[in-house]
């Protein structure tokens, strides 16, 4: 178990370095956002699955997590036209 946690920690550290490294590439706005979201998505998934024990939980806990995720996506999707596109 300890090995798993250390592997996840190592992966998170590498992904952080990747984010820093990508900033030196000076990608255009769309590219930078895509890479940042992709890296953040992988990191969040790893943290939720291992450090927050979601991988080892019952289905009902998964259900509550995915319901929350669903509402967060609704919030982001529906305020995007107002907030994201108005800049």
């Amino acid at each position: 178990m300890k090995k798993t946690y250390l592997t996840v920690f190592g992966t998170l550290a590498v992904l952080t370095l990747l984010t820093v490294g990508v900033s030196y590439l000076h990608l255009n706005r769309a590219g930078a956002i895509t890479v940042a979201l992709l890296v953040a998505g992988i990191k969040v998934s790893l943290i939720a699955a291992f450090f927050m024990h979601l991988k080892f939980e019952k289905k009902v806990i998964h259900g509550i997590f995915y319901t929350a995720l669903f509402f967060v996506l609704i919030l982001l999707f529906l305020i995007f036209p107002d907030i994201g596109l108005s800049q």
């Binding site: 919030l75 529906l78 305020i79 107002d82 907030i83 108005s86």
Partner: peptide, 12 residues
Amino acid sequence: GSALLWQHLFWF
């Protein structure tokens, strides 16, 4: 910043 963002977060 965005004033509308508060309204969205508040009413959510």
